[in-house]
């Protein structure tokens, strides 16, 4: 299905304004006016923001829209919005795949996350550019969605090629067709999309060639602790990497009970912080910075893989982008995975 890009954007604005199909909010990647570097952020759709659907991923990880930075666990009042998130990239869809298993499973359901998942339509889009730290290809990812979306859009000239990925997506396309005109897809168009995808992927491959690590991630655990000390020298333990990581979901609960109603408020925690998992008497599991630093890598590559069958890294590169110590995540992975000695075992 093909639709004119302008028509599509106007329709999204209309949905947001007129609550079409019950969707009362449309969130898009938008470029702030002051931005000079092409970075985009999730914003509610409006006339003021420049909407960017075919660049690379947003600065914000997708989790901030599903697993809120700070959320009360008692009140359902604030959660009554049905919404659409547009322009989600493959790296974030992959992150949702992991958090879906972590936060909605047979032993545990996070009520907040589940609510947002059930009330959000995801319209993903192909990456038309690659960001400075994009490295999904190193984690078996592609710069275009394969699954996990309700609708995916691929831009082609001044049009969007729309593909439904779920019954909810199909239903929305039907609604859309009653508002704007469609053209049937011609063969030449799809091959053009495929060519574009391949081109982007090839440039990613080329750019990240030097960062590709051997795939024995168990070596991260076996590698010499001295190596981890070296790698973490510029780490200040600020926790930016975990807070911005789309698969980090460690939490702390604050007790904000007033009167007789017990109230728990959940917010993000970070294993990079000294106080993480500190217990009565002052004990902490990893008192040294390099131990906490190392834990993040082991968690992403070994623990999460064993817990969920998926790596905790989607290659979005946000941790590298956010790091004030200029630590490149992928470089650390490569160095520690490859430079371990037999003696260290």
């Amino acid at each position: 299905m093909i639709v004119k890009a302008n028509d599509f954007i106007s329709f999204l604005k209309k949905v947001d304004k007129e609550k079409i199909d019950g969707f009362s909010e449309v969130i898009v990647p938008a470029k702030p006016k002051y931005s000079t570097n092409g970075h985009t952020y999730f914003h509610r759709i409006s006339e003021d923001n420049e909407i960017v659907l075919d660049s690379f991923r947003t600065v914000d990880p997708i989790k901030i829209l599903f697993y809120l930075v700070r959320e009360s666990m008692n009140s359902e009042k604030t959660r009554n919005t049905k919404r659409i998130i547009v322009g989600v990239k493959q790296c974030d869809l992959k992150a949702l795949e992991l958090t879906d298993i972590a936060l909605i499973n047979k032993n545990f359901i996070d009520p907040g996350y589940k609510h947002w998942r059930e009330n959000t339509l995801i319209i993903s889009s192909d990456c038309g550019e690659i960001g400075e730290n994009c490295s999904c290809n190193l984690m078996d990812g592609k710069p275009y969605p394969g699954k996990g979306f309700d609708i995916n859009i691929s831009s082609i000239y001044d049009n969007y090629f729309l593909q439904a990925g779920s019954p909810g997506g199909e239903k929305f396309l039907v609604t859309m067709s009653s508002h704007i005109g469609f053209e049937t897809c011609k063969d030449v168009d799809t091959s053009e999309i495929q060519k574009k995808r391949e081109k982007i992927f090839a440039s990613l491959e080329e750019r990240n060639l030097s960062l590709r690590a051997k795939r024995d991630f168990i070596n991260l655990k076996l590698s010499d602790l001295e190596l981890w000390k070296d790698e973490s020298t510029s780490c200040v333990g600020c926790g930016a990497c975990t807070n911005i990581c789309p698969t980090c979901y460690c939490l702390i609960l604050n007790d904000e009970t007033e009167a007789q109603e017990f109230m728990k408020v959940r917010s993000y925690d970070s294993c990079q912080w000294n106080g993480y998992a500190r217990v009565a008497g002052g004990g902490t599991p990893r008192p040294k910075m390099f131990e906490r630093f190392r834990n993040r890598y082991l968690c992403k590559y070994l623990y999460m893989k064993s817990n969920f069958g998926l790596y905790g890294c989607t290659g979005c590169g946000r941790c590298t982008e956010a790091c004030p110590g200029k630590i490149s995540f992928m470089k650390v992975v490569k160095n520690t995975a490859e430079n371990f000695s037999e003696v260290a075992q």
Partner: peptide
């Protein structure tokens, strides 16, 4: 919501719920 291969049980009570005692 999208379907991923995972086993989801019937919704249990809010796991964050506190029982006064």
């Amino acid at each position: 919501m999208n379907q991923f291969n995972q086993e989801v049980a019937e919704p249990i009570v809010n796991p964050y719920e506190v029982v006064p005692a």
